[in-house]
């Protein structure tokens, strides 16, 4: 009898967490999915309208701005962070004397809140007091840098701040990858006469494929979720020039009282993230089982 109870203890211990997640994650996804097909406005309402909200959503100029911005931001952010991260990792891998000092400096922004990062860059890029002002004071009278106030360029300042925050982390991932490369392979390549950057290009970087994949997944996931940084840096502005799906969802749901449309935009975000994450996790778990 006691042995039977013992058998159930593990499941009972796991149950609360599992039920919480089941309800508060998957239940909520279903609920939001349902709301996205209702005529909810300020409060949930259950008049079923089918896919009407999705049609409305994709007809909205704001939503399309948000998607375009996400594409620009996502591509640049992932690309620049990865390349910069890899570049810095390779440089740091050259037996640098002060590596122990430099590495934490590259990485510390990851410990900061996006709100802090946003605040710092907001004033640093502000033409009135920030970089533009500094350069003009230092004698470059014609220096102009007012992207943050420019509808066409503000999104790039979001990229700038986001890259500043995450590239050190990508660097750390690549550095760990580089250090994990089998030393004997490198020795073999050196004996074969390959040297210097050719070993990186032909042998080491191709072996970094899994790191590239992990970096891509992490960065893509951060990009789609990006909310706080935009709020703190530009507030979505000027106008709505830096709107992203995450900020769109929030403002439509909670300030514009278009809950149905807000819910449908959240569902689109979920689909975007899951289409990247699910195959990745699946393959990771599969290969984990084979080990």
């Amino acid at each position: 009898m006691k042995d039977r109870l013992q058998e159930w203890v593990p499941r009972l211990v796991l149950a609360p967490s599992f039920l919480l997640v089941l309800l508060f994650v998957y239940g909520f996804i279903l609920y939001t999915g349902y709301l996205s097909m209702t005529d909810s406005r300020m409060l949930p309402s259950y008049g079923f309208v089918g896919l009407e909200n999705y049609q409305k959503l994709f007809a909205l100029r704001h939503w399309n701005t948000a998607l375009t911005n996400l594409a620009i931001f996502g591509i640049l952010y992932i690309l620049i962070s990865s390349l910069l991260g890899l570049f810095l990792a390779i440089l740091l891998d050259q037996k640098i004397r002060a590596e122990g000092l430099i590495r934490p400096i590259y990485l510390y922004p990851m410990a900061l809140s996006f709100i802090v990062t946003g605040t710092a860059w907001k004033w640093f890029l502000d033409p009135g007091i920030g970089l533009e002002n500094v350069m003009q004071q230092w004698g470059w009278e014609n220096f102009e840098f007012n992207w943050i106030k420019d509808r066409d360029f503000a999104i790039y300042t979001v990229v700038l701040a986001a890259v500043w925050q995450s590239s050190g982390f990508v660097m750390a991932m690549f550095l760990a990858g580089l250090r994990g490369v089998d030393n004997e392979i490198i020795k073999a390549a050196q004996i074969d006469g390959a040297s210097g950057f050719r070993i990186y290009r032909k042998i080491i970087i191709p072996m970094m494929r899994p790191v590239f994949l992990s970096a891509f997944v992490v960065l893509a996931h951060l990009a789609i979720k990006a909310y706080d940084l935009v709020i703190a840096l530009t507030g979505g502005g000027p106008g709505r020039a830096t709107e992203l799906p995450a900020t769109f969802m929030y403002s439509y749901t909670f300030t514009r009282n278009q809950m149905g449309i807000g819910a449908s935009s959240a569902i689109i975000m979920l689909i975007m993230i899951f289409s990247i994450i699910v195959p990745y996790l699946y393959s990771e778990l599969k290969s984990g089982e084979q080990k």
């Binding site: 796991l14 967490s17 599992f18 997640v21 089941l22 508060f24 994650v25 998957y26 239940g27 909520f28 996804i29 609920y31 939001t32 709301l35 949930p44 996931h221 789609i224 979720k225 909310y227 995450a246 969802m249 929030y250 749901t253 909670f254 809950m259 807000g262 819910a263 935009s265 959240a266 569902i267 975000m269 979920l270 993230i273 899951f274 994450i277 699910v278 996790l281 778990l285």
Partner: peptide, 25 residues
């Protein structure tokens, strides 16, 4: 395996998706 998969996947949801029901709960 399924339990772990579901817990793991929950790390990656965009939290916008739970805002409305969470406020109500």
């Amino acid at each position: 395996g399924i339990v772990f998969g579901l817990l793991l996947l929950s790390c990656f949801i965009p939290f916008q998706i739970v805002l409305i029901p969470m406020a109500r709960v």
